[in-house]
């Protein structure tokens, strides 16, 4: 690889890749959400769906460059996503305590099909965590090489 200079010059603008990704990525994103939401009835769940959703974002970064993608999808949005996911999971667990149930005992909420909705929400929370962490891993690995490869102490 000859990308030894300061910028991440591995990015090459390609009309074919950009057009393909523009067509494909909404479908990949939707499929990821489907796997997440439909994990209770078919194969899949939060981990798998989250990884697929993240890969649709990474696809965009590959096609349109990492910096434009980062400007479009701010780091703080991803961090918020991860936080909301984790809070949802833990919140559902602790919420059951308020209804005199055990930790994560979905039946304690007393809604009809409460267990199913509890599981769905937990899967969505996991999906948010996984998607957010994978995207931020990608962005930070890419950006980390970009800016401060020196040892500037923050």
């Amino acid at each position: 690889m000859s990308a030894a200079d300061g910028s991440l010059s591995a990015y090459v603008e390609s009309t074919i890749i950009m057009t393909t990704v523009r067509v494909v990525s909404p479908f990949v994103f939707t499929f990821g959400l489907f796997v997440m939401f439909h994990g209770a009835e078919s194969a899949g769940g939060g981990f798998q769906g989250g990884a697929i959703v993240a890969s649709s974002i990474i696809m965009l970064a590959f096609a349109f460059g990492i910096e434009p993608t980062r400007e479009w999808l701010d780091d703080s949005v991803i961090r918020l996503l991860v936080g909301v996911g984790a809070t949802t999971f833990v919140g559902i667990g602790i919420g059951a305590l308020a209804f005199d149930g055990a930790f994560l005992e979905y039946a304690a909420y007393g809604i009809s099909h409460g267990v199913k909705y509890g599981i769905e929400l937990v899967e969505l929370g996991i999906g948010a965590i996984v998607a957010g962490v994978i995207v931020s891993l990608f962005m930070n690995l890419a950006g980390g090489f970009n800016h401060d490869s020196g040892g500037d102490d923050a």
Binding site: G39, A40, A43, G45, Y106, K116, I119
Partner: peptide
């Protein structure tokens, strides 16, 4: 017990 068809998810 869980109303969920995918045993793995349950």
């Amino acid at each position: 017990q869980t109303d969920v068809e995918n045993v793995v998810t349950a």
